Simulated assay, not measured.
Amino acid sequence: MSKRCYYEVLGVSRTVGGDELKKSFRRMAMKYHPDRNPDDPEAQDKFKEAKEAYEVLSDTQKRAMYDQYGHAAFEGGMGGAGAGGGAGFGDVGDIFGDIFGDIFGMGGAGRTRAHRGADLRYVMELDLEEAVFGVEREIRIPTLVSCETCDGSGSKDGKRSRCGTCNGLGRVRMQNGIFSVQQACPHCGGTGETIENPCGDCHGAGRVEETRTLSVRIPAGVDNGDRIRLNGQGEAAPAGGAAGDLYVEMRVREHAIFTREGSDLHCEVPIRFGQAALGAKIQVPTLEGEVDITVPPETQTGQVFRLRGRGVTSVRTGRAGDLICQVVVETPVRLTKEQRDLMEQLEGTFEEAEPEAHSPRASSWFDGVKQFWSRVTS
């Protein structure tokens, strides 16, 4: 299979300049690189083809030979496309350094900026009442703080020298084949400086371990997963950078009575058979005390009563949710002889009357069962 024209491969004209040539190869490299297309052999072939084209056209001597002789210039004894010096392979590496350098926080030229201290996360467990009404808590956080002895410099005498490994840049270039990336200098940790006389307390790190006690005010209405950010209360930064933040994340414990959905509270309220049949006034709990609700006669299990504004006041909107009570008709247990006799007399009256008059739900259910069996057996 004959090779395609190198200019065609890169999608450029024969008069293309160096900058445009580099941009074109960069676009193709980003699109077809094997790391981005691990399961696409065709993309990998296109990447190799583009790389080969760029290695030739980015080198002045090779490009001149290609323009005069085409692919034949690099066949036989005239040398392969990757042979020789010039800007070929080195520029390919530089392009990938440009593309991927920011991944390592290096950016362009110049010394690496001071690193920011790490953020910390603390999980605070709350009772439902504490989450609803708010609470103030003290927490203890093990962290890294700036060394007071050396004022965070890491140096006993305050002197720092330029790193000889990276020449003060704070970064070094690592190259593996065509892949060239920049990373923090392993000798100075990206600071560009070294310490000849380290502090005896922090051993040159500029930070020491300490457990800090902080008072945290939890606002009313927080819920599971909500976070509070305390600016600058995270780890101190090395080399004088800004401290990180502390994130306090809420975990609300399960409640014996209520469950929460957004700003609404839900609870089940058990009632007796007689209360459900005859109606009654019952007391239900809320977060602010008990309130009375009226259960109408002939109430069924699962019926819902909504108490407006008795839920949780949202920390975001300031609006209060509702308390949603679902009644559960409870079957009586441990009946006395008198209660059993009375229950049997009552049940007998139901048997004498038409069942659907007193149990419409059961009647419709049995009708559905009959229709089902009729369809199955027909």
Score class of each variant (00 low, 15 high):
residue 100 F to T: 01
residue 135 V to E: 09
residue 91 D to R: 01
residue 91 D to W: 02
residue 72 A to H: 07
residue 70 G to T: 00
residue 81 A to K: 00
residue 94 D to Q: 12
residue 95 I to R: 01
residue 190 G to P: 13
residue 148 E to C: 03
residue 177 G to L: 02
residue 75 E to D: 04
residue 136 E to W: 02
residue 170 G to Y: 12
residue 186 P to E: 01
residue 170 G to C: 11
residue 185 C to I: 09
residue 191 T to H: 13
residue 190 G to A: 09
residue 115 H to G: 15
residue 114 A to R: 13
residue 87 A to G: 05
residue 138 E to N: 11
residue 141 I to Q: 06
residue 107 G to Q: 14
residue 103 I to M: 15
residue 82 G to Q: 02
residue 194 T to I: 15
residue 78 M to Y: 05
residue 88 G to E: 02
residue 82 G to H: 00
residue 176 N to R: 09
residue 150 C to P: 15
residue 195 I to L: 10
residue 129 E to K: 13
residue 76 G to Y: 03
residue 145 V to G: 08
residue 115 H to Q: 15
residue 71 H to R: 01
residue 193 E to L: 15
residue 202 C to N: 08
residue 99 I to V: 15
residue 171 R to G: 06
residue 156 K to C: 01
residue 159 K to S: 13
residue 103 I to V: 15
residue 189 G to M: 04
residue 97 G to C: 06
residue 80 G to Q: 02
residue 177 G to S: 09
residue 155 S to L: 07
residue 164 G to M: 11
residue 149 T to D: 11
residue 158 G to C: 09
residue 112 T to H: 05
residue 69 Y to R: 03
residue 96 F to K: 00
residue 133 F to G: 02
residue 171 R to T: 03
residue 89 F to C: 02
residue 98 D to N: 12
residue 196 E to C: 00
residue 128 L to K: 03
residue 141 I to K: 04
residue 193 E to I: 02
residue 184 A to H: 05
residue 161 S to N: 11
residue 196 E to R: 12
